[in-house]
Each structure stands twice: as C-alpha cells, then as structure tokens.
C-alpha cells in the first residue's frame, strides 16, 4: 500500500533531478533497494506506470539493484551476508552485531537525453 506514496516520491525526485540536469526524456532509473526494507519492486513498478505519465519519466523503466543484508559481528570480528533479517551472528550466535547494509533505498543514477 505505502508503495504509492513512495513511488510518488521517486517520480518527483527523478523529475527534479532530470530538470536540474537538462534531461527531457528519462529512459532508465537505477534504484538501489536494500533487502531489509519493506518495499516491493512489483508494487513500485505498478504505481510507476501510472505516475510517470506526462512527466519527464514517461518513457523510463526502473532497474532494481538489490543490496544484501550485511552485518559485522563485534564478537568474532567478521562480516557476514545474511538472507533473513535476523540480526544474530551466523557464525558465533552473538547479538553484538552492527548492520552494515540492507536499509538502502536510493536513486543511484538516471539515464536519458
């Protein structure tokens, strides 16, 4: 559900940045999405098709780039990539861990002319 307002922010941000950089026709939006966020690429794509109409993004498609969840354990001093957001060290079980990545949600770049 909240993907509607999120996608609205995405379209606004891309139009603003396209304007600033004299891009009239955006072709691609490279979006980085951490695996520890609540955003569904499918719903974003769905709303995007409606929201892009009559904007600089009208011909654009979104390229999703997923970012893995990485944690650093201060007990065994190792980095781990984990599948599920269970914030325990998979090696030693310690909960003294720091989240290094996985919460990202940003526009990396846009392409267009």
């Amino acid at each position: 559900m909240h993907e509607f307002s999120v996608t609205k922010s995405l379209v606004d941000l891309c139009n603003e940045e396209a304007g600033r950089n004299n891009i009239e026709d955006v072709k691609k939006i490279h979006l980085k999405v951490g695996k520890f966020t609540g955003f569904s690429p499918d719903s974003i794509r769905f709303y995007f098709e409606h929201l892009k109409v009559n904007t600089r993004c009208r011909h654009a498609s979104i390229v999703f780039e997923e970012i893995a969840i990485r944690i650093k354990c201060s007990n065994c001093c190792k980095d781990h990539t984990i599948e599920d957001p269970v914030l325990l060290c998979p090696a030693c079980g310690s909960d003294r861990i720091e989240l290094m990545s996985g919460r990202e949600f940003y526009v990396a770049s846009i392409e267009g002319e």
């Binding site: 941000l13 940045e17 949600f105 940003y106 526009v107 990396a108 846009i110």
Partner: peptide, 15 residues
C-alpha cells in the same frame, strides 16, 4: 544519452 549520478534517498523529502 547521458547517465547522471544521483545518490539520493527516495524518501529524502520525508526525511
């Protein structure tokens, strides 16, 4: 065709 680096959070305005 050009590619511009943006590196801005989507929810930047909310933040």
């Amino acid at each position: 065709m050009k590619r511009i680096k943006i590196l801005k959070p989507v929810l930047v305005s909310n933040q």
